[in-house]
């Protein structure tokens, strides 16, 4: 959180994203947006409302329903000097873009000996509990984290979303930017003036002494809620949001783990071979001799996300889940 937000202006996460895009579109004529239903429709989640009116259909470009096609378009545009921002409506669709992202965007700088760059951003979504069933509810960001050459950003507040997206657009490398579709209406303080947040710097969302909860994106608010409950049991929880999964601010995670000696790692993606596995491993390697207990991971249940609301809710960690896990780790 910014220590001294001059204006206590509160906007939603969707508005913060829109502001970031608008500011970068104004700032740099090479920036353009492309994707499905983003111009007149302003995106199904209404994140992009008004942008086509200001910047015109050539810079807010509606595309056919062909993720591989317009992702490839963006990769080529980025290589030839533009700064495209690709909109992939649901993160579940990134499978369609994988060859463009993994084999082209991620590698061209390396394979060309630095002659080519691919300064593009892919914005997409994650998160369940929107009753969107198994093909529109997944959190697949771990896939992108696995590939050298891609940066992966997961904002958890309007403030972070705006500052990180602006940095992502200005970055010389391909960046995949995951927004939690359930957090678009989350309000938070965002200063009106220009700011950016560097990629690779974690944020301590709450200072605590007894246990560290490392949480990403949608799980940060859950962690903060659980931390409040834990206060009543004399368990002081520290909540840390890495904000970018690559580059990863390992030091902040390890330092916190060393301080509290107990760690929960949570992420809405699948735990198996997932983000929590990597974060837990980093912490175990870095803070092993300061740990009182094994690092506990919380993530999506290892199943396709159910359409049935009660079943869908059961697949995602809740404040209660975190609360119980934290008490068990602390033996209280």
């Amino acid at each position: 959180m910014p220590e001294a937000a001059t204006a206590v202006r509160e906007i939603t996460l969707a508005e913060a994203v829109r502001e970031a895009l608008a500011e970068e579109l104004r700032r740099d004529p090479k920036v353009f947006i492309c994707g499905e239903d983003i111009a007149e429709a302003g995106h199904p989640f209404k994140v992009l409302t008004g942008l086509v009116q200001e910047f015109g259909p050539e810079r807010v470009l509606d595309t056919p329903i062909s993720e591989p096609g317009f992702t490839g378009l963006a990769v080529g545009a980025a290589m030839t000097g533009m700064r495209p921002v690709v909109d992939i409506m649901f993160g579940d669709f990134i499978g369609l873009t994988m060859d463009q992202m993994v084999n082209q965007a991620a590698k061209i700088h390396y394979m060309s000996g630095g002659k080519w760059r691919c300064p593009m951003v892919m914005r997409t979504t994650l998160g369940a509990t929107r009753r969107s069933a198994a093909q529109h509810s997944q959190s697949l960001h771990a896939w992108m984290c696995h590939v050298p050459g891609l940066k992966v950003v997961l904002p958890s507040t309007p403030y972070d979303a705006k500052g990180l997206l602006k940095s992502a657009i200005r970055d010389e490398n391909p960046v995949v930017f995951f927004e939690d579709k359930m957090m678009y209406r989350l309000k938070g303080p965002v200063p009106a003036e220009e700011y950016t947040i560097p990629l690779g710097v974690a944020d301590v969302k709450r200072v605590g002494e007894d246990i560290t909860i490392v949480a990403t994106s949608s799980m940060v608010q859950i962690a903060l809620g659980a931390a409040k409950l834990l206060d009543e049991y004399d368990i002081s929880a520290e909540v840390i949001d890495p904000r970018t999964l690559w580059p990863l601010d390992e030091k902040t995670l390890i330092d916190s783990a060393k301080k509290t000696s107990r760690v929960i790692v949570m992420d809405e993606g699948y735990g198996r071979y997932g983000v929590t596995a990597e974060l837990a491993s980093v912490i175990a390697e870095g803070a092993f001799f300061n740990l009182e207990a094994p690092v506990k991971r919380l993530g999506a249940m290892h199943v396709p996300i159910p359409f049935s609301p009660p079943l869908e809710d059961a697949t995602v960690p809740t404040e209660k889940t975190v609360f119980d896990a934290a008490r068990a780790l602390c033996g209280k």
């Binding site: 000696s261 300061n290 740990l291 009182e292 506990k296």
Partner: peptide, 17 residues
């Protein structure tokens, strides 16, 4: 597994150190 150890003395890494 995460919590079960075959070691007779169950002790945290920090406490052991």
């Amino acid at each position: 597994s995460a919590t079960v150890s075959a070691d007779s003395v169950q002790i945290s890494p920090k406490a052991r150190r």
